[in-house]
Amino acid sequence: MKLDSKIPEGPISDKWTNYKDHLKLVAPNNRPKIDIIVVGTGLAGASAAASLGEMGYNVKAFCFQDSPRRAHSIAAQGGINAAKNYQNDGDSTFRLFYDTIKGGDYRAREANVHRLAEVSS
């Protein structure tokens, strides 16, 4: 999908909001005309494929193995944290953002990780 060049630039914390606010919508009757390819059938890929299929899109899911199976996402220990900011907890959106970036060896897309931290609360 081509990004519209009219989307205003700004700090990373506003990138997702600006993109979402300027995104063109797809009418429900046009969704069966759009093919979506999902690569990977782990936790995220399978849930994305299922959700998009329920919305009416044509979804094609591809996986490396012979068939979809238990992914590393499900086998991971600990799971994702949330920035709930309980009393004396010291959590914040920035702290979750920083810990996630650092934990991923600085390979993650910062705008996406910031959005994840933002919606976790």
Results as ranks from 00 to 15, higher is better:
1 M>R: 06
76 A>I: 04
101 I>W: 00
86 Y>P: 04
62 F>E: 03
83 A>L: 02
63 C>G: 10
50 A>N: 14
36 I>K: 00
52 L>R: 01
118 E>T: 08
109 R>L: 13
81 N>D: 11
6 K>G: 08
81 N>M: 12
60 K>R: 14
116 L>W: 05
41 T>N: 07
34 I>V: 07
73 S>P: 01
116 L>S: 05
93 T>N: 06
39 V>D: 06
100 T>C: 02
82 A>R: 06
77 Q>S: 15
4 D>K: 07
13 S>K: 07
88 N>H: 11
109 R>S: 09
58 N>M: 14
40 G>F: 02
45 G>T: 05
7 I>Y: 03
29 N>L: 14
46 A>N: 06
92 S>P: 03
49 A>F: 01
65 Q>Y: 15
95 R>A: 09
50 A>Y: 15
74 I>N: 12
87 Q>K: 15
19 Y>V: 08
15 K>H: 11
65 Q>T: 13
118 E>D: 13
27 A>W: 05
55 M>G: 07
42 G>K: 03
39 V>L: 15
57 Y>W: 01
47 S>N: 12
121 S>A: 13
56 G>W: 00
6 K>I: 13
102 K>M: 14
101 I>P: 00
48 A>K: 00
55 M>T: 08
45 G>A: 07
72 H>L: 13
53 G>N: 06
46 A>I: 11
80 I>N: 10
51 S>W: 08
54 E>S: 13
38 V>A: 03
5 S>V: 10
92 S>L: 09
51 S>C: 13
75 A>W: 07
8 P>C: 07
18 N>F: 02
15 K>S: 11
33 K>C: 06
89 D>M: 10
111 A>W: 05
66 D>H: 03
55 M>C: 12
27 A>P: 03
3 L>N: 05
33 K>M: 10
91 D>T: 13
25 L>E: 13
72 H>A: 13
84 K>F: 14
58 N>K: 14
74 I>P: 05
90 G>C: 08
119 V>D: 02
111 A>S: 08
35 D>V: 09
38 V>L: 04
111 A>L: 09
40 G>L: 04
41 T>Q: 07
27 A>I: 08
37 I>D: 03
30 N>G: 12
12 I>R: 00
89 D>N: 10
1 M>G: 09
90 G>T: 07
116 L>T: 06
62 F>G: 02
42 G>Y: 04
44 A>L: 15
68 P>L: 01
105 D>A: 14
91 D>S: 13
33 K>E: 09
16 W>Q: 09
105 D>I: 15
93 T>S: 07
105 D>L: 15
107 R>M: 14
32 P>N: 01
83 A>C: 05
100 T>K: 00
13 S>E: 09
2 K>W: 06
44 A>S: 14
111 A>R: 05
85 N>W: 12
7 I>K: 02
44 A>K: 11
80 I>C: 07
70 R>T: 15
62 F>P: 01
68 P>F: 01
45 G>I: 07
19 Y>N: 03
23 L>K: 10
96 L>K: 01
81 N>V: 15
14 D>K: 04
5 S>Y: 05
60 K>C: 12
